[in-house]
């Protein structure tokens, strides 16, 4: 999805306005001219400047307002794209309740199948990967991966 520069510029102006409005409300450091709002306001000014330049060039360019790439017309690709995002969201939501191993096994299996890997290979990868990762990260590198539902089971 490629936006016309003019549209991108308008979005930037809007973002700059929001940033500036929020930054305006930051309390000042007593007795100082420069404080918490100084930098956000400078950044907002910069964003607005970029926005203005982009609006200028976008209007000259005469490109379509939004240019839809080819993949957006192919349902398969769109589903692939959305499945990656969904996978990460599932990871986030199931992370603590289900635990690392179960979540990762499930998500990997679904993704591999979605991308057209065979049943057997998918199953093998989906089972082996989380167990290996749990051992390396959880046990050796002490990353506190949640055990979730598998908490009562002792892993060696």
């Amino acid at each position: 999805m490629r936006l016309n520069d003019a549209l991108l510029g308008c979005i930037l102006l809007l973002v700059a306005a929001v940033v500036a409005a929020i930054a305006w409300g930051f309390p000042a450091v007593p007795g100082q001219d420069y404080g918490a709002s100084t930098f956000p306001l400078l950044i907002a000014t910069g964003l607005a400047g970029c926005g203005a330049v982009l609006i200028g060039s976008g209007l000259r360019e005469r490109a379509p307002i939004v240019e839809w790439q080819a993949w957006l017309g192919e349902p398969r690709r769109v589903i692939d794209f959305l499945s990656v995002i969904t996978a990460i969201i599932v990871w986030i939501l199931a992370w603590r309740p289900l635990g690392f191993i179960l979540t990762t096994a499930g998500v990997l299996f679904a993704l591999l199948r979605r991308f057209g890997v065979s049943w057997k290979t998918s199953l093998a990868i989906a089972i082996a990967t989380p167990l290996i990762m749990n051992y390396i990260f959880g046990r050796l590198l002490l990353v506190p991966l949640p055990a979730g539902l598998l908490a009562p089971i002792r892993w060696w």
Partner: peptide
């Protein structure tokens, strides 16, 4: 709930033993 999941754990093929009950007895067991 935990028993049921234990079965699931065995299915995953990586289980060795079940730790003590989920109460504080035998704390800490993990």
């Amino acid at each position: 709930h935990r028993r049921a999941l234990l079965a699931a754990g065995i299915a995953l093929g990586a289980v060795t033993t079940l730790a003590g009950a989920a109460t504080a007895q035998g704390y800490p067991d993990r």
